[in-house]
Nucleic acid binder design. Sequence first.
DNA 1: GTTGCGGTTTCTGTATACACAAGACTGATC
DNA 2: GATCAGTCTTGTGTATACAGAAACCGCAAC
Lengths: 248, 248
Amino acid sequence: MYTETATMGSITPLRASERAYRQLRGEILDGVLAPGTGLLEVEQAERIGVSRTPLREAVARLIADGLVAGRTGRGFEVTEISVDSIGELYELRQALELQAVRLAAERRDPQAFLVLREQFLTAPELLLHGDSGVRRYYTLIEEFEEAIDAAVVNPFLVGALRSVRTHLARIRRLARKNSLRLRQAAAEHLLIIDAIIAGDPSLAAHAAHVHLHMSLTSVLRAIEEDALARGDRIAPSETVYPQISQSS
Amino acid sequence: MYTETATMGSITPLRASERAYRQLRGEILDGVLAPGTGLLEVEQAERIGVSRTPLREAVARLIADGLVAGRTGRGFEVTEISVDSIGELYELRQALELQAVRLAAERRDPQAFLVLREQFLTAPELLLHGDSGVRRYYTLIEEFEEAIDAAVVNPFLVGALRSVRTHLARIRRLARKNSLRLRQAAAEHLLIIDAIIAGDPSLAAHAAHVHLHMSLTSVLRAIEEDALARGDRIAPSETVYPQISQSS
DNA sequence: GTTGCGGTTTCTGTATACACAAGACTGATC
DNA sequence: GATCAGTCTTGTGTATACAGAAACCGCAAC
């Protein structure tokens, strides 16, 4: 959004602030910088190899993204992800994605989604091919999201969606999905795509609603199982939807 | 969100970057800095009375808000508001506000909305009292929005709503509403409030949908009338929804 | 043992200086 | 007279220096 390098692939030396932003953002999304980690300006500036000025600009952008929060006195810290915040994020996600697929169904270029449809049909087979298949599947999801963005046109809505996807990327790391769930998800996506091709906004929205419900349920269950496997004590009454204290 | 001055009213000297941000933001929202205005760092830093470093931080936040866009070569500029972008903003607004009132109806504290209800009942009377009445009415709207935010709880959703409201503030300036429309709007708000009090999410969402539709129609008509009054040539076929070229 | 106060240290917030790049202007040549 | 090239101006991107403030540590008193 800042530096247009559309013509050629990042031949531009890239500004220091942009480098710092991308590196920090990447490290936060990959979990290298764990939630709650306290960061100091000088320390990070040295590590990344830029001076404090561009680093501060990068941090300002991360704060705007909601990936980092300014601490009162000392430095800044990577924001926490609580189970509550996952539910909250999905409430926003639902509002945005239902609207997005609705508009996409009204305005779509059928051709683009017909191509996507073919690819999603091969997903179950794809997911039998181990880790590389899973990666290929995730690129497919990205192409799907890009097709939606292109069909929706609306920059405000697309911007809000991008923000949500940033946080989703962090959550995905928390609960790596099993391949059974991924096959289900592919089928759910196929339904949404069919509705969009058919130009049926209402069906597209309802299919997306179903998908998001399944997705949230799966994520929460995976997190819960991870917690149990690590031996965290969870009271029996809370096993279905464990309530963890909320930051923010 | 940055500086907590909850205890006392802005006794804190306030950081230079924060001052620059608030001043620029205020001037953009009030239209003092018109859309399309080109801004230069040195020039603005001098005018506001801060050095370039905090000014750049302020501009970075404004860019994140979508109020300002970086120009390729020279400086930055206040973003344009096209008629298309108003429609697009309302598409996002609809997604967010319908979800918000839905959740508010589920989670609300009835007491807060009963108080609001009483106040909104007096709105038609209030709006007979000229300009001060109109200002009082707008504070009422703000209280309504705050009550929704409090009832929704969800920080992600509330954050997205705040962003939308920022852009709405600019649009309101473009098309100052007549008092007839404001009385209608008050009645529409009352319906939403009643639905929330009744704990009926679906009714609340539908009432909000109606309100937004009326609001958008009114805004577009007001802008069109302004354009005609200024003598702008609009082709007859475009009178209902004039299509103006889109920035962003 | 705990609590309060003061000194010290470290970190942020801001200003400023410097380097590099992109336009603009001027002069020369065709 | 027009066009191109070189220089010059101007503005951003970055580094760094300085000042003020907040946290930490130690000491002392209760």
